[in-house]
Structures are given as structure tokens and as C-alpha cells.
Design a protein around this nucleic acid. Sequence first.
DNA 1: CTGAAAGCGCTTACAG
DNA 2: CTGAAAGCGCTTACAG
Lengths: 354, 354
Amino acid sequence: MAVRLIDVARAANVSRSTASNVFTNPERVRPQLRAQVEAAAKALGYAGPDPKGRLLRAGKVNAVGVVVPGQWGVADTLRSPVFVQFLQGVAKACDKAGASIVLLPDAPGISGVASAVVDGFIFGRIGQMEQLQGARRRKLPFAVVDFNAGPEVNAVLIDAHAGAKAAVKHLLDLGHRRFGFISFIRGSGPTHLIAPGPGRDLSKVGLQIDQEKLRGAAEALEEAGLSLDSMPILNAQPWDDSAAGLILDEAPQVTAIFAFSAMQAIAVIREAKQREIRVPADLSVVGYNDIPAAAQCNPPLTTLDSQPVEKGRIAAEFVLAGERGRQQYLAPRFIVRQSTGPAPLSTLRRTLRV
Amino acid sequence: MAVRLIDVARAANVSRSTASNVFTNPERVRPQLRAQVEAAAKALGYAGPDPKGRLLRAGKVNAVGVVVPGQWGVADTLRSPVFVQFLQGVAKACDKAGASIVLLPDAPGISGVASAVVDGFIFGRIGQMEQLQGARRRKLPFAVVDFNAGPEVNAVLIDAHAGAKAAVKHLLDLGHRRFGFISFIRGSGPTHLIAPGPGRDLSKVGLQIDQEKLRGAAEALEEAGLSLDSMPILNAQPWDDSAAGLILDEAPQVTAIFAFSAMQAIAVIREAKQREIRVPADLSVVGYNDIPAAAQCNPPLTTLDSQPVEKGRIAAEFVLAGERGRQQYLAPRFIVRQSTGPAPLSTLRRTLRV
DNA sequence: CTGAAAGCGCTTACAG
DNA sequence: CTGAAAGCGCTTACAG
């Protein structure tokens, strides 16, 4: 049914090679013959060489795969503004290189890493080393973001430890002593509170990068004679709207909340407003990531810019260039807006409400 | 260098067919032989069948291409929140079908429509029929959004005429008589004002869907005894921040602005605030598309929800199902928030400023 | 359950 | 400048 190159070649009375050249290396074919072949192609309705055939022979797809955690799916992941910023960065590099982007789930199915038709992979959010196995086996170049997978793996990293430390220091300088944290949740479990307690196990909280944030926060607290152990940590998906209410319910004594995602920070501001808790007079809020809504919300959010666009761009460049084992560190930028202020003298008004 | 299926087959002392079956139809192979092949694969470091080879033989890629206008590039297009919502819809359908999404520019280059390795195309924003040529020649199913390309072309459409008419009626009911419009610009030209004037040519303004909006607006105006010809229209990219200032400069007499994108509407609100023009007391603003920022801005934006997620989902379903010539109409939802209010009694305060 | 053969559609050295 | 031949890596009827 479908017209093939050989059909065109026959109709034009030339060999397959010549017909192929007409489409791929036109300058190698005499104008007259070229016109002959083009006429035959037109007459037969030939669309040009089938990419599937070309692919097998030529080897290169001109596409990079952006792998999305299977548990969320592509649709859910696109709801994250930071992921979209990251994707913009990937697209910048791909646009320049004339490559296309394939969005694919990290699922065992037919559309996953094992069978994607791409020249390489970028992992946008990763929980553990094992998720890289598939890409490694394909022997294609790949890059990882926000995850250190050892010296042989291309990675674009941000110094989240320093960022979180700076954020907590900023709050300490404002006089805050009682903090609450909202972390990204690893896997797809339900939102839950990790109550304060000495020696509690935080190793399952969040992704590798959230672990770094926790350590950065702990360090800043210790330098001020405080301990992270005495502070509540909420474990939630960035888009779970119940988290903000939960932490305000469970930790009314807190005067500052540091959320490891901008969406959660904004949710806290919104929820606080509904409860007539003033931000920043009663409660200071710091986020992580500088999404568009962070500057637009009221009050505008104090947050860390984690450079997602740059991350995506560099990761894509590594993959497109076929690099192996490159590591690039980026510095977060701390942006002070109006959601943080001096610690209130008393939390009486708030605790009374509970 | 790379290990192939045949290498594994030889090492395991079986035929290629059997080796192939181990990976593709394991249940057809006796456990013992299967283990033998798997051991050989492991020993050789074989990653499983190369998708490029499989593809050519099997025919189906399990991916749909989302085509982005070449003049903007993928990176620019991802800056549009509506496009991202649309992509979410596409992803919903693809996640369910186990397909991946390929983001590709509508450019002549190697990564374009002509050579993309996909099972079909979705056109997210289209200026003219000719852009469909490439997809048509590939003989793959494709769908178009917000563009009527005739009865043989799958399309998901929204009744923008009715939506725009409702929006203008809403403003008329509030007493407004002097309107300004900000349309999407076709192509990549610079932002410019189309001054009022009888019989001016509006056929080059915006895309097909913006033409519909203009007609809907004109109809509402005529029913109120007014003419679109007497109203200024600004032609701009949704992300051009200078447009809001320009229309406020050039059309100070206007009491209501209807922007054909939410981003422009929000920009007008922001710019008005800077000039101490009160919204909605001095100026009413209506947008098109209900992006997250529309509800969050201050005051929240009165706008039309154009159902981008649904559009994407349905378009993807058409393509995944191999449909041809389906047309689906969606109704826009008019959302009244706080950026529109009664027309001011006088625009004196504002005109004095100019 | 297993294997020999054909072929998916194309490009790429190579010989002329 | 042009053509005959080999082969990219795999799967799929088909025969046994």
C-alpha cells in the first residue's frame, strides 16, 4: 500500500541509490534525473524517505528522551511549574541543535526507557540509582539532574545544602527559633507528619536533594544552638493542598515554615490567610524554586532560585554532545521577598485559636 | 562493537527467532532455553532488542508528535501556560495508552514533521493550512486544535465566537462603551497598534481563532449600536510585556480591555496598577484562557476558560485511535472574577494623566 | 517448542 | 554522475 523508495526508483527508471540521493543528497544528482525522480515521486504521492528505514541505517534519531518518574506519569509531572522550567532549558539546547524532545515515563511498558527511540536520556527527578539501570543498559549517553550518581554519570547539580543553610540563617537572623519544614515525599505515599523527637530517622524523607536541604538546615540550626530534631517535618507531594493546613494544625507554635517546594510555600501562605494568620507578621514562609507564581502571590514569596532552566539546558547539552561523566555544579540564588519578616514576640494569638 | 541479537543467539546456541522470542514473547520459549539465552545476554551485556531495528519491522513507534510552530521553537512555546495545559491533556491520553510524546518544531530541519519518528501528529497552534502539508504527506493520522481545516481533518475546536461575544456583552451590561482589544499576532512581526478606522482590514490579525473572537466581539458591539471599527486593536505576542503599556498609552479613553490571551490581560492589570489606574474601578479587564496566574493575580481575572486540557486529551485520542475527519466542538466557560466592574462615570482622571 | 528464510525501507561504501 | 550489492537489527509467518 505505502509507496516506497524503490517504487519511485522504478517509475523513474533509476536505481534506488539515485532515488535516495535525490532526497538526501540532491546535489549529487544531475538536475535532469533529479527532476525525473521528483516527478515520479509526486505522481506516486511519495512523502520522502520513511524515517523508520532511514533510522535503522543512519543510526541517529536526533531526539533526546526526558524521563519522568513512572509513578507520576507525564501528565502529573507537567503540573509542576519547576519541571516545565526545566523542560524549557532542555528545549533551548534542543532547538539550537535541531533535536526534538521525547517525554517518556520511566515505566516498564512499551514506551519506557528500554524501547524509546532516542539518542540519549535526561532524568529530571530521580529517587534512587536503580532507576538509571535502563538507560545504562541502552549504552546511550544520559544525564541526571539534582542527583549525584557517581563520577561516571553526567550530572547537573545544585548546592542545595548551601541554599537551605542560607535560608534558615536568614530566618534565624530575623529572630525565629521554632521552625516547621515541608519536604518533598519520596515515592507515592500519603502526606504525613514526622513528629519531633531525638534521633528520629530522616533517611527516607524526600529525594537525595531534600536530604541535602535537611542537612543544610540542620547545620544552620546547630550553629545557633538549636536542633532539627525538635522541629516537625511534613512529608508531602508538592501539589497536595492538604499539607499546608496539616502543618498549621499540628505545629501551631511554629513561627517560620520552610517548604522544599514553591507550591507548598504558596499553599501555606494561602492557608494562613484563610486562618487570619498574617504573613510575615505572625508567620514567615520560605520556599524552594522560583516559579512565576512565587513572585505573584501575596505577599511575594522569599525563595531559592534553583536554576531549573540552566539545569535543563546543561543536561541536554551533555547528552547531545555525547558526554560521559561530566559534572556541573550550580549555585542557588536566595531571593528575599516579603513573605519573611521578624519573628513575632509571641505566638499567643495563634495558639489560642487552636 | 554493539552486541546484537544474533550474537546472543550464537552464544546461547539458539536461532535468532528463539532469542527474539525470549525478549518479546517469553512465554513461547521453554524455561530452560530461556534461562540459557538470558544468561548469554547478561554475559554479553545485551540490553534487549534495539528499538530501531524492532521499529522498522514492527511498524509502530508508540509516540505522538506535538508540533510547535517553527518560528517560536519549543523553548518559547513552553513559556505559554496554556500550551502547557494543552500538553497536560495530551499527556493524559498518552499516559493511558502507554505512548510517549515527542515535542517537535515545525521546521524544515532534520527534527521536523518530515522525519519525526512518531505514529501521528497534533498541531497545537496553527496559522494556515499549508502547515499541515508535511503531516498529510506522511499519511499518518493527525489532529488540529483551534483550527478548522475542513471535514477530512481531525479537529478539536472551541466556540470562540460565542465566548468573545459573551465577554463583550458582559462588559456592555456593565455600561462600558469604549473598548480596546489585544490580539494574538500572526507570524513573528513586532507588536503594533491597528488604529480605529472605518473598513480597516482585520484579516491579518491573529490566528483563525482570533478572527472568530473579533467577529464575536463585533457582533455583540453591533447589537449595542457600536462598531468594532472605532475601537483600537493591539497586535502582540502573548509574552510581549510592552503591549500593556502601549495600549494604555495609545488608547487612554478606553474603559475596558479585552485581551485574547490571559498573559496580556494580566500584564494590563499589572501595568495599570503601576500607573495608578484602578482595576476595575477605572478600567475593566477581560482575558482569554484560564491559566493558574489568572485566579491568583490581583484582582483575579475575569476570563474565558478555553478548555485546553480537554482539547489536548481529545486531540491525542483521535490520533492514537487512528481517526480521520473527526470534529469535536467544546464550549468555552466564562468566568467572572474581580477584574471587571461597572464602567466609570468619567475617564477624566485618566485622560488628564496623558 | 524451535529454526531457516524473508523482508521491514532505507543508506552507504564501492566499482564503474 | 550512476548502479549493483550489502547490510543496519529486528520480527514474523511458516514449516517442522
